[in-house]
Design a protein around this nucleic acid. Sequence first.
DNA 1: CAGTAATTGAGAATCATTCTCTTTTAGGAA
DNA 2: TTCCTAAAAGAGAATGATTCTCAATTACTG
Lengths: 139, 139
Amino acid sequence: MTTDDIKSKLIERGLKVTPQRMAILEAIYSLKNHPTAENIIDYILKKHPNIATGTVYKVLGVLVENQLIKKVTTEKDIMRYDGIMESHHHLYCMESDVIKDYVDVELDELLQKYFEKKNLPGFKIEDIVLQLKGTFDNR
Amino acid sequence: MTTDDIKSKLIERGLKVTPQRMAILEAIYSLKNHPTAENIIDYILKKHPNIATGTVYKVLGVLVENQLIKKVTTEKDIMRYDGIMESHHHLYCMESDVIKDYVDVELDELLQKYFEKKNLPGFKIEDIVLQLKGTFDNR
DNA sequence: CAGTAATTGAGAATCATTCTCTTTTAGGAA
DNA sequence: TTCCTAAAAGAGAATGATTCTCAATTACTG
């Protein structure tokens, strides 16, 4: 993911390209494990000492609205963010709060077929998120 | 769900039976739509004008730890609570924040079988929660 | 019914997030 | 390129959910 790639993503959505938005997107792509706003701020401060906390939250909101990133919720009351927009699920470790991406095309197809047959009356599904809660055995 | 039923649940878990815990559990069972702590406090204040906010949060934490209730997360940063412990999923309406329970034994079996075969290396699944995000058509 | 550890109340403290308002800036137009 | 304007960012106060502290109260044990 180059700087130009990131810039293109913003332009595609009709968003102005600002250094702050570039830096925040770059941070989300670099930081693994679904960073919190705080993680992102810490990361960015190295290169942009003057970025305001409020700006980070504002930009994150804009990026979510424009579907460049996703919010990820856990049972902790801190929001986390995910830069991967392809369909995937999450393995959530309740002990360590680690969230691992879980891509499973076969499962997605299975679920899609299942819900095509079993129509949910009055509800239009837009996204199916499977949260697999558990613990990582080994390290 | 009678008062005695609720009391039994507390005793089963080895928890002391206090009026506050009784009232909070009763509130969660009565309030539909996965109440927030605030919803619960409002509900309880009618009968228990002196209950402290902090107590409600503390009790909610204890009830979650003891598996009498579950936390439910949405993209809003307010925690919601669920008194139904049987396996079920959620239809989450992104427009109205309504959360409807979705019980589907067939789906649970399908998922269970699927993950029995497809072993996830290094991860022990304890709970599978499907969040179906979308919108309710009518109403 | 007394003793004790657990629980609660009251309110301050914390911490993530939002808001307000002023200043700055990106990007289109001249 | 330079100008213009709406959009974005900065600074820091405000908000609001949740947690913490500590003294007073209470549920259960014996």
